[in-house]
């Protein structure tokens, strides 16, 4: 059995003059959690809708669970970006309706509904009408609708948007549990910390084009900014004079925000060795090798007019900027 759960090959989608998705290809392996990132209007939801066969691509091939998503809808859980419920329906009736659509028997559905409502901390709402729930509660209710049938593939479009920090953590832990149980998850988000925390793989799309498709460790190594943060124990002037003689430093600037020097290293310089040299040169309160966050990567890749070529040679781009 193939380990590839979702596969897109050269997928394109246009809406009139707008080329919403341009020649996008990627694969998601079984059991992986893939973060689908991109600025607003980048084409994330359109791509997800095509994966779900809600929209059809103009060209390219999409394979989901070995075939078309239309044939596998009972094995996919989907939380769309735009939340929607039957406002007049009671909570239990809505979830039962969703369960029936996914082929779950009524008795089985009832026990699952009870269990999930408790799990997402929504007790005593089953007889309420959907319109009586708060926005956050409705979002959790819809999340239950997506996972009730225990699908092997879960697609979540902005699952954390609009949730307070407590519920965000709650939902995040549920997603983590599903991942541990082997569910393959594709989720789009603007919450970079959540993506960094949960994802094995990151897909970044910008203006309809894929600009990044890497595992988290690949991203960390590729987007190593080669910057050391050093907070001096003595005066800034003294420390500046002392650091000028350290070898391998390309540039240096004082960060008021960090109350530290941001020291950029030349290409080929070993950061560990440089840190030792810096500590020898001047007394320090703190020294650390700055790690690229997903937020930094996102801003770097979509902040300017980034092309696919630039993204694939992102490491070189960083070097050029610092050179």
């Amino acid at each position: 059995m193939s380990n590839i759960v979702i596969q897109l090959a050269n997928v394109n989608k246009r809406f009139g003059v707008l080329h919403a998705v341009r020649d996008v290809s990627f694969e998601i392996q079984r059991g992986q959690v893939c973060g689908f990132l991109g600025p607003n209007g980048a084409g994330k939801s359109t791509t997800i809708r095509m994966v779900m066969s809600i929209l059809l691509p103009d060209s390219g091939v999409i394979t989901v669970l070995g075939g078309s998503a239309l044939d596998a809808k009972d094995r996919i859980g989907y939380l769309p970006e735009e939340r929607g419920l039957y406002r007049k329906m009671r909570v239990a009736d809505f979830l039962r309706f969703m369960a029936k659509l996914k082929g779950i028997s009524r008795a089985d559905a009832d026990s699952r509904i009870r269990s999930w409502l408790e799990r997402v901390e929504l007790p005593n709402v089953s007889q309420k009408r959907c319109e009586e729930l708060s926005k956050g509660m409705q979002q959790k209710l819809q999340f239950i609708g997506a996972v009730l049938h225990e699908p092997p593939l879960l697609i979540l479009d902005e699952p954390f948007s609009g949730l307070d920090p407590v519920n965000r953590r709650l939902l995040s832990s549920v997603v983590r549990q599903l991942k541990e149980n082997g569910t393959t998850i594709l989720f789009s988000t603007h919450q970079m910390e959540q993506a960094e925390d949960l994802c094995d793989q990151i897909l970044l799309i910008h203006k309809g084009e894929k600009v990044l498709d890497e595992t988290m460790s690949q991203i960390h190594s590729r987007f190593d900014p080669r910057t050391i943060l050093a907070q001096p124990a003595n005066s800034i002037d003294t420390a500046t004079q002392a650091l000028k003689v350290v070898a391998g430093i390309e540039s240096m600037r004082w960060s008021l925000e960090q109350k530290s020097f941001e020291i950029r290293l030349l290409a080929g310089v070993d950061p560990q060795r440089a840190m030792v040299d810096i500590m020898r040169a001047t007394p320090l309160r703190r020294v650390e090798l700055q790690r690229a966050t997903l937020d930094d990567v996102f801003v770097k890749l979509v902040g300017g007019s980034v092309t696919k070529f630039e993204a694939t040679s992102a490491t070189e781009q960083v070097k050029v900027n610092h050179g």
């Binding site: 809808k73 769309p80 419920l85 039957y86 996914k102 609708g145």
Partner: peptide, 16 residues
């Protein structure tokens, strides 16, 4: 109503 309450996409995730 299903369109305006955005429930349509939820339905289309489960049915063609």
């Amino acid at each position: 109503e299903e369109k305006s309450s955005r429930v349509m996409e939820v339905l289309l995730s489960a049915v063609s």
